[in-house]
Design a protein around this nucleic acid. Structure first.
Lengths: 139, 139
DNA sequence: ATATACGATAGAGTTAACTCTAGGTCAATG
DNA sequence: CATTGACCTAGAGTTAACTCTATCGTATAT
């Protein structure tokens, strides 16, 4: 089964612009052409899915191109490509930890926002800056 | 205890440029000045930490400004600010799921890369594209 | 035969988030 | 009193990743 660029756009949730941009940037050197028109095969979509995973997890286009080059270069082949994926997996694992920490932080901040507000911005009987709160508030 | 901009830069791992940029963008309307020079207090660093958490978890500068404006605006105050944080927490929870999915995907792709390579790029007794494997290939 | 639709390219424009440069103030030091 | 170092602003420059425009080619439908 073959696909046109607009069909692949739908399947991958990329815009047609983006797919052509990726091709221009050397991410899709394996796509066939018929009279200049791109022809996508089933397996191409698997590769594009991989590219999307790398992009979604923050790998820059240039590095994705390096990865694809390794994969299409018959000397380096899979080993070098695998090396990149395995290294990138560590990034994703780090992202996971970072996001978990962000979640903890925001939970803490949600709890403490009223107090942070009071300490810095509250007006009324107290002064506006923490000079005023220093009387009631101890660090 | 007061801090200069370069001390805050070290504490927060932001560059001096970035801190001034954030100020320019209205993220730090609460910073005091002495003869034009910024003076940072302890509580300011708490607020900058919150800003960093929001930024690290993908909130755009404009939205962070909106949040800060709510917090410094004595009419809207905490409720509106809390609303934004609570809504943003959902984004972070989504990021967590997305990252977990990315991790699964990359694990799968690491396992299957050799096969993906064979299917699309392998040479030898077979042709280079899948045209060879289907003999002629019909649309 | 012309309009419509879809494909293509080259290259310009956009956006976010910095990052840096030029030029200036001010306080302490030799 | 000149130099050094840290601060300031305005505004220009950078980078990544799109996103769009202009223009063209081809095929099908009316």
């Amino acid at each position: 089964m073959n696909y046109t660029i607009s069909q692949v756009a739908k399947k991958t949730n990329l815009s047609i612009y983006t797919i052509r941009y990726y091709d221009k940037e050397g991410l899709l050197p394996f796509i066939d052409r018929e009279n200049g028109t791109r022809v996508f095969h089933e397996h191409d979509v698997d590769w594009i899915d991989l590219i999307c995973c790398l992009k979604n997890s923050g790998m820059p286009i240039k590095e994705i191109r390096t990865f694809i080059n390794y994969c299409t270069d018959h000397d380096a082949v899979v080993e070098k490509g695998l090396e990149i994926l395995i290294k990138h997996r560590q990034n994703i694992e780090q992202q996971l930890r970072d996001t978990q920490r962000n979640l903890q932080t925001i939970n803490y901040k949600i709890e403490h926002l009223p107090q942070m507000y009071k300490e810095k911005f509250a007006v009324g009987d107290q002064r506006k800056t923490e000079l005023g709160t220093k009387t009631t508030e101890v660090k």
